Amino acid sequence: MSNTALAQKGAEDQSKPSRGRPRDVEKNRAIIDAASRLFLENGFDGTSMDEVAKRAGVSKQTVYSHFSSKEQLFGESIHITIEKYFPDQALQEVRSHTLEADLTAVSMRFAHLLMSQDAMAMHRVLVSAAPRGPELAQIFWEAGPAEMIVKLSAFLKYWVDKGELEIDDLEKAGARLISLLKGKPHFEMEIGLRDSVSDDVLEAHVVDVVKCFIKLYRKS
């Protein structure tokens, strides 16, 4: 299947904040990796640019030459993590493209993200920061989930245009798919009833979600 439909939203990516300086990709990557781990380990307030520099093996000046603030670095670390789970990445693994096969691949990839230990750790970071106001949550939302919904909308539009799905509000349908993918397993992890979700349980959960979603939106 062509990824043309998924690429239609590409122009919107150009409006995103600068993602560091391409002049030194290796250092940029090291800074982001170090920051990502520190944010998960220590939270946003507990992470300093000095610590990021030390963990990345660069100077503090180098960190600031790539990222103007800790907030920008936080947003970029979220974006880099989540973009690996975008639909176009999942579709590269599908050999025979059907609605069911593609939706399952996309859903499975994103479910792995939702149920990951890093996702749970980030949830705790955001919850702990919530009393201070919505600023950090807004950065997180714009850097990751909002773009994921845009990508899902483009993916769903492809199948609407193919005549297999009937969806009036693509963004709402994308958000609904994410909510369905969370379901009981995600809730149990959030409250500490389970540490992880086995591959068998996750696969069965995704199969049920895909069936439910297609039943909701299959064009009659």
Rank of each mutant, 00 (worst) to 15 (best):
S2G: 06
N3R: 08
L6S: 09
A7F: 07
Q8H: 12
A11E: 10
A11Y: 13
E12Q: 14
Q14S: 11
K16S: 09
P17G: 11
P17F: 11
S18T: 13
R19I: 09
R21G: 05
P22G: 02
R23N: 14
V25R: 06
E26V: 14
R29C: 04
I32E: 05
A35Y: 02
R37N: 08
R37Y: 05
L38A: 10
E41P: 00
D45H: 06
D50F: 04
D50H: 10
E51A: 15
V52W: 09
A53C: 06
K54R: 13
V58Y: 00
K60C: 05
K60V: 11
K60I: 12
V63R: 03
H66P: 10
F67A: 03
F67D: 05
S68Y: 07
S69T: 15
K70F: 01
Q72G: 05
F74C: 12
F74V: 12
S77N: 07
I82N: 08
K84I: 00
F86G: 01
D88W: 10
E93Q: 14
V94S: 04
R95E: 15
H97S: 12
H97F: 07
L99F: 06
A101S: 15
A101Q: 03
T104D: 04
T104G: 00
V106C: 03
F110V: 06
A111G: 08
A111E: 08
H112Q: 13
L113A: 09
L113M: 13
L114R: 11
L114V: 11
M115S: 07
Q117E: 15
D118M: 06
D118A: 14
A119W: 02
A119M: 12
M122Y: 09
M122F: 11
R124N: 09
V125H: 01
A130S: 12
A130C: 03
P134R: 05
P134I: 12
E135I: 05
A137Q: 09
I139F: 01
I139Y: 04
I139T: 15
I139H: 05
F140S: 12
P145G: 01
A146Y: 03
A146N: 11
I149P: 00
V150G: 03
K151V: 01
A154G: 13
K157F: 02
E164H: 09
E166I: 00
I167E: 00
E171S: 10
A173Q: 01
G174D: 01
L177K: 03
L177G: 04
L177C: 06
I178E: 00
L180N: 04
K182F: 06
E188H: 08
I191Y: 05
D195E: 14
S198W: 02
V201E: 14
A204W: 00
V207E: 12
D208M: 11
D208Y: 02
C212G: 00
F213D: 00
L216R: 00
K219R: 15
S220E: 07
